[in-house]
């Protein structure tokens, strides 16, 4: 009889690519995201949509352990974050870094290989070849040696995407990758994301533009301090759901949040 051994590759994953289980996130003591319950399967292009201040970016940061959970849990491929960190790529908002920082485009893309290298090892020719290939995929091979501050906004965003590609992850989080990005870069970015989906990856994108959401994402979640709706794009982006998402923060959650922050009861 043949024995089946399970390896540690993606084949052994025992759960969905991403699962939020009753996640609540608080800044200080004040909850800003309430009871998010959401399961997302790979492959796919998944959009997280909602108004400003809805907690979309916070949801990504909470999943990545960058802000602590006040309650609930997040699992990736059925496992906790610490076991699968290297399989998760993260593209933060472009404004979070100082673009005058003295590094070249190549330096930044190579950073995607650092986690895999581990302590005390430097990126070698293999990593450089990989970084070059990633730059090529986002159409920036010809600016590899340029200081990052001399790029356009769209090019900077593509450098960030190339860094995540160099990580060779199975799950990608992108925070507003299209904010302030020219049309050509937008197209290039979405072509790469579609390639990732075709390769079996899950790509989760925080996105603000409703107009493009319907055409780009397979499935979306509407978020405004809580999960309003999630599922296939056409089924979720209904006028009723959008009205509930964009009606402004729910009074009760707002009141409660402030009461919890100040350690008192609501009126």
């Amino acid at each position: 009889m043949e024995r089946v051994t399970r390896t540690s590759g993606p084949g052994s994953d025992s759960g969905p690519a991403l699962e939020f289980h009753d996640v609540t996130v608080a800044y200080g003591r004040r909850p800003v995201l309430w009871n998010i319950d959401l399961v997302i399967e790979a492959p796919g292009l998944f959009g997280i949509i909602g108004p400003n201040g809805a907690g979309k970016s916070t949801l990504l940061k909470a999943a990545l352990g960058l802000v602590p959970l006040a309650g609930g849990s997040v699992r990736f491929f059925g496992r906790p974050l610490d076991e699968v960190r290297r399989r998760i790529g993260y593209v933060p908002q472009r404004e979070t870094v100082d673009w005058d920082f003295p590094v070249s485009v190549m330096d930044v893309v190579l950073m995607g290989t650092y986690a895999r290298l581990g302590w005390f090892r430097r990126p070698g020719s293999g990593e450089r070849a990989l970084a070059n290939a990633c730059l090529d995929r986002v159409g920036l091979a010809d600016v590899a040696d340029r200081q990052i501050g001399r790029l356009s906004g769209g090019q900077q965003q593509r450098v960030f995407l190339a860094r995540a590609l160099a990580q060779q992850a199975d799950l990608y989080f992108l925070d507003e990758p299209l904010a302030g990005v020219d049309a050509r870069s937008q197209e290039q970015i979405f072509r790469v994301l579609a390639e990732l989906r075709a390769a079996g990856k899950l790509v989760v994108v925080v996105h603000h533009d409703l107009r493009t959401a319907a055409e780009w994402f397979d499935a979306v979640a509407l978020v405004d301090m809580r999960l309003v709706a999630a599922g296939p794009t056409a089924a979720v982006l209904t006028p009723e759901n959008l009205r509930r998402t964009y009606a402004g923060p729910l009074d009760v959650l707002d009141e409660l949040g402030r009461a919890i922050e100040q350690g008192r009861r609501t009126p």
Binding site: Y90, V91, P92, F101, V103, M111, Y114
Partner: peptide
């Protein structure tokens, strides 16, 4: 280098 340039991404990468 990674921490100085982009601490959030560095932390997310472990």
């Amino acid at each position: 280098l990674a921490t100085a340039f982009d601490p959030a991404a560095a932390r997310a990468a472990g």
